[in-house]
Amino acid sequence: MTKHDQVLVKAQNVKVHFPIHKGILRRQVGSVKAVDGLNFEIRKGETLGLVGESGCGKSTAGRAMLRLYELTEGQLDFEGVDIASLDPKALREIRPRMQMIFQDPQACLNPRMTVGSIIAEPLDEHTNLSTEEKREKVKSLLDAVGMNRDFVNRYPHEFSGGQRQRIGIARALALDPDFIVCDEPIAALDVSIQAQVVNLLQDIQERMGLTYLFISHDLSMVRHIADRVAVMYLGKIVELADKRDLYKTPKHPYTQALLSAVPVPNPEVEAKREHIVLQGDVPSPANPPKGCNFCTRCPVAIDRCRVEEPELRELNKGQFVACHLAE
């Protein structure tokens, strides 16, 4: 794993809380703890998968990585620079190096801009390329994502979902970033195109030496693309490990439950497998339970879990788990 030992992004106790305002005076009455203390590293060139149920704070975490949300607390180092505390100008300068690919390829493209100008816009802002060079660059980016060069003057609504996602990718690549957050980039696409887009992402990663934070709730897709995987539950990481370890020996009860729900292709094995069915609903992030976040649904919870919050501790080398009982 020498290829991946340089740390690119390091999150320390990252929190994003959204204030809740109520009443005529719109006083703050509480907050949604969408992301509540993340600690992890992303190493250069790797793909870190981030999985979890809907609403657990994946997107928020991903956006926070690019400081598209202001952090409520915590430190976020990008190559050793804490971007959480950068002033807007410096932030803007560093922005080209980190990009994002969004879940909904339609919504993330400005409907009133042509494909060409969507891709070229950041070039105007961050480079000194001539118009001609810019045009060339745009065309080569379209090539890179497997799109017809002649589409530059079309508007986003004239494309299919898969094509739009390619445009989104081309756009993200325009400034030669190092780090890309892929927020469920294939969730909105047809199954038939999902593979194409994933392959494209992998291709590009190889060619350009990119680092990905790949957000998904599809465990098998993450298994395919990620090097390491982080599992989130209610704003927190409950387990973080190499994908091999995580899928083979999940330590956290939540991870175990998640994995048990993933069907196995072999019907015999599938039939014999034990399914852990979680009881109850995910608590509201505005009002998380005391102690372990998972304690309300955990099949093995003990009294301690309802009082004391488990630390994320390194169980085996490289395998971190936040559970009192895990060993």
Binding site: R63, L68, R92, P96, M100, N110, P122
Partner: peptide
């Protein structure tokens, strides 16, 4: 968000 991410 895209636009912001672009560093505009």
């Amino acid at each position: 968000r895209t636009a912001r991410a672009k560093g505009m």
